[in-house]
Amino acid sequence: MRSLFILGIRGVPAQHGGFETFAEKLSLHLVEKGWKVTVYCQEDGEGEIYQSQWEGIDRIHIPIAREGAFGTVLFDWKATRHALTREGLFLTLGYNTACFNIMQRLQRQTNVINMDGIEWRRDKWGAVAKVWFWLNERIGCWVGNHLIADHPKIKDHLNTRVRADKITMIPYGGDEVRSADKAILTEYGLQADQFSVIIARPEPENSFLEMVRAFSSRHRNHKLVVLGNFTPETNAFHWAVMDAASDEVIFPGAIYDATVVQALRFYARFYLHGHRVGGTNPSLVEALGAGCAVIAHDNHFNRWVAGPDAAYFEDELACSKLFDRLLSDSVAVQQMRSASRKRFKERFMWEQVLLEYEALLIRWDLATQPRT
């Protein structure tokens, strides 16, 4: 029986983000194919490490009393140390604590690392954090037996660190959405196709201020729903975004109910994606899977994911002009929606993504087996 251990995430079932969702999908897929899959899970509180099972997946729970980034680092440290006692193939999702994976390299464990995005380029991090991420990216490239990039441009970037045959490009996946509960819209005072949506962390690098200002530059007879955890009383950027918003902009906060988020995507006229840094963004992939008409920041990350038929803006003025032109152009919107579904089926369906991961992991599992 093939055995895989997954490190680098909070755990399964998914509750926290894209990597957790991916880990859940991959784990269930591999268990169905006869693999023994173990996922390290971070738990709040104190106590001893314990084990459980969920949907055929073995889980190793590590209680952590500290919150925030330090708690995550402590969890990764304890999980990696615990993994040294195990035999099998390892998949680490993210390189943020790749310095700990040096122990696995010394132990001669085979570790495939998904290198995620170029974290040290993100505006939200201070100088110390950027140095930490930069160093760990370098270390991850060195200690990983093989690297996974989720975007062609991420692969190009990693290729400046290591040889090309050490990297495989496999994007993030998503579920196709063909229907959603329209009744959910009434809870937010919305009507189908009479609103657009932003779903992201409210960070400067995600173009929140530019998009909200562009929309609010004139009366639109349309609503803009901005999902995210805004704390204007303690965050100056959050305050600036909310202060720039017209009365047609709605801030319902962070919404974690998947059925609600799905409905907001599915019935929105546009999905706005302002990310300027990163690889294949899960939220953008999910928007394609829901057939959203996409308006995105113009960069090579977003252009590869959303394709040539999405609408792109470079700055606030260009974004405003897109609203001026497209809000009333139903023919263009329908063409954009069709193009999104086509692009999604070309490259981002979970079935295809998981099969590519399985093939890569089988290759490395075979490489770990002793020769007879």
Results as ranks from 00 to 15, higher is better:
Asp298Gly: 09
Asp315Glu: 11
Trp54Glu: 06
Phe313Tyr: 14
Thr280Glu: 07
Asp247His: 11
Glu43Ser: 14
Tyr312Ile: 00
Phe323Asp: 01
Ile6Ala: 00
Leu361Pro: 00
Arg276Pro: 08
Lys223Thr: 07
Ala359Thr: 12
Ala240Trp: 00
Pro252Val: 03
Gly56Ile: 08
Arg2Asp: 12
Arg138Asn: 03
Lys130Asn: 07
Leu135Pro: 13
Ile295Ser: 01
Pro232Asp: 05
Asp315Asn: 15
Gly18Met: 06
His238Asp: 13
Tyr357Met: 00
Ile170Phe: 05
His29Tyr: 10
Phe251Ala: 08
Glu67Thr: 15
Trp132Ile: 13
Gln369Glu: 15
Arg265Asn: 14
Arg66Met: 13
Leu30Arg: 03
Gly173Tyr: 03
Phe348Tyr: 15
Gly71Asn: 08
Leu354Gln: 02
Arg325Ser: 12
Arg341Lys: 14
Ala200Gly: 01
Cys41Val: 14
Val197Thr: 15
Pro13His: 05
Gln42Ser: 13
Ser283Cys: 03
Ser340Ile: 06
Lys153Trp: 05
Ile199Gln: 07
Ile198Tyr: 02
Ala310Arg: 01
Asn299Tyr: 03
Leu322Glu: 07
Phe313Leu: 11
Ala79Gly: 06
Gly18Trp: 07
Pro202Cys: 04
Cys99Gly: 09
Asn281Ile: 04
Gly278Thr: 04
Arg59Met: 13
Asn206Pro: 05
His82Ser: 11
Ala311Gln: 11
Gln51Phe: 05
Lys321Ala: 11
Thr368His: 00
Val331Tyr: 04
Ile49Gln: 02
Arg325Asp: 13
Thr168Gly: 01
Met1Gly: 11
Leu326Asn: 08
Phe266Cys: 02
Asp44Met: 14
Gln109Cys: 06
Ser328Met: 05
Glu203His: 07
Pro370Ile: 07
Ser246Gln: 06
Gly278Ile: 08
Ala311Arg: 13
Glu205Lys: 03
Asp243Gln: 14
Tyr256Met: 08
Gly88Val: 01
Asn281Ser: 07
Thr231Ile: 09
Ile6Val: 15
Ala310Asn: 02
Ala244Gln: 08
Lys124Val: 14
Leu91Trp: 10
Phe301Gly: 15
Thr368Ile: 10
Ile362Thr: 13
Glu346Cys: 10
Gln42Glu: 14
Asn136Met: 04
Ile9Asp: 03
Ile102Asn: 09
Ala183Met: 04
Phe19Gln: 05
Tyr95Leu: 05
Ala263Thr: 12
Leu74Lys: 12
Thr186Met: 09
Tyr40Ala: 00
Met336Trp: 09
